[in-house]
Structure formats: structure tokens, C-alpha cells
Design a protein around this nucleic acid. Structure first.
Lengths: 351, 351
DNA sequence: TTGTATGCGTTATCAT
DNA sequence: ATGATAACGCATACAA
């Protein structure tokens, strides 16, 4: 059967046909191997031949098909970054930081939101496995979830945990939440506070564990007995902050200070306070984390635990890349921590 | 010549070797073609054979290599989304919306920040071309930049413009900024304002053109003569808002109302005002866009032009997908607009 | 119904 | 220094 090319009847010149090395080779009058050598700067190509090839490339406007390169190199030069929600400025900022180190090194960063749902995390990890991602940055919802952990394990992909930890099993990068929280509580104690509430989320994560440990240690150090009812640890949502702050302030023995730990929590807490006609620091002192523009322009501006989320992203990327480079040798488990800082503003008063 | 397989001498059982269809086929005792048919659900495969294959797949934990699939199908199932900065909640929200429609359809969304630099936009477009992206969502800095436009053209990739337009040359999706701005200005006029300033950025974009046109039309309709010195149109940065609002309020004839159009602008404008001891709406009325949680919890809360950024992302994705599906037929140019809404709060006073 | 062989766009090995 | 050719992992036209 005569094979007829189904031509689209286009004029000569620019055609819609995808171009390949072959087209370039033909145009330059060389072999495909030579074209490949030129673009990969393999030494030992004649100067004028190289010139001809480059001219042909410019002429046709060809760019090598990365998918084809990858299938040969059995790499994808792609990194997956999984977190709960890109709308959280913390993750957006980390993404930005990571992008800055991956891009120049030829890696494509793919960020994706799991909405904190572990089944979705598993799907995403599997997706990245099918796409043969070279590495993963993981900020998962629950470090102990077995489905997620086995998805990670079976993926066989190099990974680092960001703001999360897998015990001694994986390299992790995080802010010093223990130090940050501890410093905040010490500050509150110095200002005379005894009843300190904490609103936050992230059960099953390093971040919550460290924050809680810091609070407990600080209370113990001051010989204050902690009131478990002042701990509201179930969500990072604004709505949760809105509800819980009102429940806390509605108690017969309300807290005199609240740690509001989570970016999206703050608007909720503030409007909850507004809604019940409570003011800060008049009725209650407030410290939030992370520091945001919102925290700084509220009236009054809010004392905040600050850390550099962009640096976190950069470090995660750099560490992961290093790990990928040494994929053959043992996956040395390390732990990185960046410092936090207490930004004093006007939302804490001495009592 | 005897071909010797270079075996790595590993123990049986789990090896680090990447697995392929061949491994699965061998394990199931069938051919590679059959395995392929099973996973692609090609009809006409014996029920028990299919079962055997599936068992083998589960057994080995194999997932088809998407890169290899793509190189055959000459598709990547990847979409690029280019905008200025993922830290802008507007883009984060659009990304979230788009992700929601691409994911279920098997497309991978890759968002990337250009920092508003056109050379970077060109690089990103070329990058997506090398990666053989199937589609592009573009929110570029300047619609008229020739380098960017020719990068788009030579890419040959299907694309839509989001919050941007290319005259009649490309499909665009955007909010009704004319309507939104017009409504805001009419509201200010009703409240007795005559001197209305506008702080915003985005020269060379649909968004600024529409906002400016709305302001001019509204002023003309009210027989008010516009003061060009009340127009501060050079940046979306918080810092710019901080400076310009102080310059405006420092004039001998300051505006009585300011349109602050740009999410990051608002914190700058508010702290600029705070810095010079001016209050709103006492000293000046304020309307911002887009609506954010920040706008709603400031004291007093700020009247805002609101539109659904997530919907914008969803629509861009849906429209682009449709366009990709019909890539053969003509790239019909359409224009989509979603409504805006004026959220009345307490930052505008009658004068 | 299933197997075999070829091609997708590269790169690398082996000739020349 | 350059060309021919075999992989890479998969899907499909064709053969059986």
C-alpha cells in the first residue's frame, strides 16, 4: 500500500511539522551525531562545521526536545514540591526561593498543592514517580502517615523534608521553631503573663512538636502550670482562629496572651477579636508567626516570630541537588535549621 | 560479535535498576505490546492475561515512564503558566484554580515567576518550548514587547492570555476591570469626591488600560476635569505605594480619595499614610483592589473591588484545554470576562 | 487475541 | 573529525 503523507497543503517555508535533529543535520549537510555534538559542546568538532550547524539551528529555530534527551539520560531534570496550598504565602515564598536555585541549574520546579489531604499527597508522589522526577521536596501534612511514607519509599526518588522531619530517616530543613516559640514565651513571661494560649495546627509535624515543647519548657522553667484548655492545636485555617479565639476569650478565666502560629490564622484571630469587641493588647496580648506585611500594618502592629521562608526554599533546593548529585553513595541524613527572630511591636503589653 | 550484558552483579530481589515494560512483560510471561495494551485499556485483551499483567505490574511496582509515552505521542501533557511573582496572592490563587482543572485531565501545571522581567519571560517561553509544553497561560508584563511576542510566536504553542490581551490576536480571559473601576469611581462621586487619585502599575497591560479608561470616562461623565498629577501608574510594589501616597497627601491640593489598585500596593499605601499621621477615611478615602483578608481586617476595613481570581485560573485552564483539543482547526479568538463587585466597607466617607 | 518490529528524538559507541 | 547505528521506554501497525 502506497504510503501517502497527509500533507496539510501548506505553503513552503514555515511548516507546522515538528523539527528534529534530522532536519537540522540535513539543513547543515552533516549527520545528526554532529549536531548533537555541537549543541552539547563535545570537543573535537571542526570550527566551520560547528558554525554551519549553529547557522542551521538558528535558521530553523530548532530547540532540542528535552523529553527525548531525558529518555536517554534517564533523568527528567524535574523536581516536585508538595505542600498544602500555594495560596499560603509561606509556600509561595519557599517556591520562589527554590525556583531561584533550580532554574539556573536546569531543573524545572513543579509545585503542587495537596490541600493537606494525604490521599492527594500519595497521588502526587505517584505522579512524580510516573514523571520520573529527580527529586522531591516534601512538606506533608502528617509525618506518621503510613500510606504517604510508603509512597515515598516506593518512589525511590531522592527527597528532603521541608519544615517536616522523618526522624533520623531523612534530611530535613526547617526553621528553629523551638527557639522562636521559646523566645516568644519568655518575652511574654517577662511582661508578666502567666496564662498563655496557643492557637495553631499541624498535628503530626515537626513544627507543632517543637512549638509545643518550647511552650512546655518555658512554662516549666517559670514554674507556671500549663492549662491544657489554652491549647487549640487543630487547624491553620482562618475560620479556626476566628472560632477558637472567641472561645478562649469567652472563658471565665481567659488567657492574657495568645500565640497565633500560622499565617492564615492571624486574620481569623483578629477578626474574631474584633467581632466580640475585644482589643489587643488591651484585652489580650498577641504574638503571631510568621511575620507578614499584614502583621506589621495592623493597628496596633503585631509582635511576630519571623524567619526567612525564601531562604528555607533555597536551602531545601540546594541540599536536595547535592543529594541528587551523590545519589550513588549513601543518602547521608542531615538536619538543617535556620534562625528565627522576635520582632517586637505593639501587640504585647506588660501586666 | 557476542553481546554481553553488563550486569551489575546485584542480588536477586529488589534492584535499583529502573524497570520498564520489558520487566513487566517478562514477569507476566507476555509481550511488551500486551502490557502496553493492558495499561492503555485497549480492548481485545484476554481477561486472564490482563489479570496476569496487572498482577505483574503490582508485583514489581512499575509505572509507565511518561517521558517515553510523551515522546511517542509527541505531547508532554504539561502546561506552562508565566506571571510575575508567585508570592502575589493573585497568581497563587489563579494557579490553584488552574491546577484544579489541569490535574484531573492529566496535565501538569508548571507555574513560573518572571519577576516582571521580559528577558526572563522570553527565557521561560523558550524553556517551555524545549520542554514541548502543550499550552501556555500568559500574564506577561508588557503586551507590546516585541521580543516576548516573537518568542510566543516561534514557540508555536497554544496559549491564552490571562489578565492580558493581544488585541484581536489571542484569546484572553480577564476580570471586568473597566466595570469594577467605573463602579468604584461612581461610588466616590456619589460620596462627593472630586479629586480622585489612582495608584497602580502595569503599563502596557489590558488591566491598566481598562482602569484608566474607566476613570477617565467616569470623570468626563461627571464633568470633572481630571488632574494628571493624581495618576501614579508606575508600579505594583508596596514601596511604590508607600512613596506615592505620601507624595500625593503632601501636595497643597491633595486628593480626597485614592484608588489603590494592586494587592501588594495596599500595605504600602496604608503604612505610608500611617507614617505621615494621616488616617482614612478621615484624611482621605480609600478603595483597593483586589479584595483580600488584609483589606477586611484593617481598621477601618477597606472598601474593595473584588473578583474571583480562582475562577479566572479555572477559566484560563478550561479555555486553553479546549483550544489544545482543537489545535488543528483555526485558533478561534475569543474574549472572556468575569464580573467584579464593589464591597462596601468603611474606608470611604461622604464629603 | 497476542507477538514482532518499527518509530518517536536524542545521545553515545563504534567505525571510518 | 565525522558518519552510521544502536540504544532509551513505550505504543502501534502489522503479522500470525
Amino acid at each position: 500500500m502506497a504510503k501517502e503523507k497527509k500533507t496539510t497543503g501548506q505553503k513552503a517555508g514555515v511548516s507546522k511539522k515538528r523539527l528534529t535533529v534530522h532536519d537540522v543535520a540535513q539543513h547543515a549537510g552533516v549527520s545528526t551525531g554532529t549536531v548533537s555534538r555541537v549543541i552539547n559542546e563535545v570537543p573535537g568538532v571542526g570550527a566551520d562545521v560547528a558554525r554551519r550547524v549553529r547557522a542551521a539551528i538558528d535558521d530553523l529555530g530548532w530547540l532540542p526536545n528535552i523529553a527525548a534527551q531525558n529518555i536517554r539520560a534517564s533523568t527528567s531534570r524535574m523536581i516536585g514540591f508538595i505542600f498544602s496550598d500555594i495560596r499560603n504565602p509561606l509556600y509561595a515564598t519557599m517556591t520562589k526561593g527554590a525556583e531561584g536555585v533550580f532554574g539556573p541549574r536546569g531543573y524545572l520546579l513543579v509545585s503542587s498543592s495537596s490541600d493537606g489531604r494525604m490521599e492527594r499527597e500519595v497521588d502526587l508522589i505517584d505522579l512524580f514517580r510516573r514523571r520520573r522526577a529527580d527529586g522531591l521536596i516534601l512538606t506533608i501534612a502528617d509525618e506518621d502517615n503510613q500510606e504517604v511514607r510508603s509512597a515515598i519509599a516506593r518512589s525511590g526518588i531522592s527527597f528532603v523534608m521541608l519544615e517536616r522531619a522523618l526522624d533520623g530517616e531523612a534530611t530535613s530543613i526547617s526553621a528553629d521553631h523551638y527557639g522562636g516559640t521559646r523566645q516568644a514565651v519568655e518575652h511574654l513571661k517577662e511582661m508578666g503573663h502567666r496564662r498563655i494560649a496557643m492557637i495553631t495546627g499541624g498535628r503530626g509535624t515537626l513544627v507543632m512538636r517543637e512549638r509545643l515543647r518550647a511552650l512546655e519548657d518555658a512554662m516549666a522553667a517559670g514554674k507556671l502550670d500549663p492549662d491544657p484548655d489554652l491549647l487549640r492545636l487543630d487547624s491553620f485555617d482562618a475560620e479556626y482562629g476566628y472560632q477558637q479565639v472567641q472561645m478562649l476569650m469567652g472563658k471565665k478565666d481567659p488567657p492574657t496572651a495568645i500565640l497565633c502560629l500560622g499565617v492564615r490564622l492571624l486574620p481569623g484571630v483578629v477578626s474574631g477579636l474584633q467581632n466580640m469587641g475585644k482589643t489587643f493588647p488591651g484585652d489580650v496580648s498577641l504574638i503571631c508567626s510568621n511575620d507578614t506585611e499584614t502583621a506589621s500594618i495592623l493597628t496596633p502592629p503585631i509582635t511576630a516570630i519571623r524567619y526567612d521562608a525564601q531562604l528555607l526554599g533555597k536551602m531545601a533546593a540546594a541540599v536536595l541537588l547535592e543529594q541528587i548529585d551523590q545519589k550513588n553513595s549513601k543518602p547521608e541524613v542531615k538536619k538543617f535549621e535556620i534562625p528565627t527572630e522576635l520582632v517586637l511591636r505593639e501587640s504585647v503589653r506588660r501586666i
